[in-house]
């Protein structure tokens, strides 16, 4: 098992086939005129982990939602290609079936939907699209329990309605559980670290690192550098006012940690 993978090692040359390619992306709120993203260019090759950092309100979650297909946002210009295919017209569930996964910054509570029912419905929906058989009940139970245990999720949490009454940290673990069960090829993690104490952060980071691999691209959104000690990125991008204003290696995160986001549009705390 690899807890921390130095980024440069996995992005070997032969894997430079482009997977996520965002070009000149402009986004506004569907019923509003203000632009939130104004001209994003970002390419994440297969096997790489890129981090996006930026002040609050810079458009990080918007980018994540747009990748997942949330309908509140309108793309006014530009494109998003995933494995060479333009996904901007695809429904959220089609994107999920195509391998896109968003770990929400604020995972939603769904009263009345049992966690297990939800997990099973989602796994089977995705398996159907991949032409795989539905999981048998014992197989499903075994896989879920195994992954839940790795993430320190207690069995009784799986019996409850999804996320209802869970703490912030428990909700984030559920996101990573879903991610490891659905085995997406593009993982977008939106501030998965916020609200986690250091132990939980390590567990979650381990969960993410287990999924790192040659066939997977990851976009890790965070406000703080701390997470990137555990999930070491290949590239770091700084988002400010809906634009990527700087890109660099993992050391850029450390630099930001020292200087803060003041120069990128957020007043120092």
């Amino acid at each position: 098992m690899r807890a921390v993978v130095p980024g440069r090692e996995i992005s070997s040359k032969r894997n430079k086939l482009k997977m996520l390619e965002i070009k000149n992306l402009h986004v506004k709120i569907a019923e509003d005129n203000a632009e939130i993203l104004n001209g994003i260019d970002l390419t994440i090759p297969k096997g790489e982990v890129h981090a996006i950092m930026g002040p609050n309100g810079s458009g990080k979650s918007t980018l994540a939602y747009v990748l997942a297909g949330k309908e509140d946002y309108e793309i006014t210009e530009g494109s998003i290609h995933w494995n060479g295919e333009d996904i901007t017209e695809m429904d959220p569930d089609e994107r999920a079936a195509a391998g896109v996964f968003l770990a929400f910054q604020y995972p939603i509570e769904i009263p009345g939907v049992a966690t297990m029912t939800f997990l099973r419905t989602a796994m089977n929906a995705i398996r159907r699209v991949r032409d795989e058989d539905e999981l048998s009940t014992p197989d499903f139970m075994r896989i879920v329990k195994e992954k839940a245990k790795e993430l320190g999720i207690a069995d009784d949490k799986l019996k409850r309605p999804l996320n209802v009454g869970f703490s912030g940290g428990e909700k984030k673990r559920q996101e990573i559980l879903q991610m490891s069960l659905l085995e997406p090829s593009l993982c977008v993690l939106d501030e998965t670290d916020s609200g986690l104490d250091i132990d939980a952060l390590k567990i979650v980071a381990d969960g993410v690192n287990r999924l790192r691999g040659e066939d997977r691209a990851m976009l890790v959104i965070t406000h703080y550098q701390r997470l990137l000690n555990y999930i070491v990125p290949d590239q770091v991008h700084v988002l400010s006012h809906g634009k990527i204003v700087r890109s660099g290696g993992k050391e850029l995160a450390l630099e930001l940690e020292e200087s803060g986001y003041a120069e990128f549009g957020e007043a120092a705390a």
Binding site: A68, G69, K70, E71, D91, P92, D93, R95, A96, A97, F101, L102, F104, P107, I108, I110, P111, G112, V113, T117, F118, T121, A122, A125, I126, V129, P161, Q178, L182
Partner: peptide, 20 residues
């Protein structure tokens, strides 16, 4: 949206929420 983002097609997601 949350359910659909997990691959559950809209009619099924809607049914799940109504049943809930």
């Amino acid at each position: 949206f949350y359910l659909r983002a997990r691959g559950i097609p809209e009619p099924e997601a809607r049914a799940l929420l109504i049943e809930a």
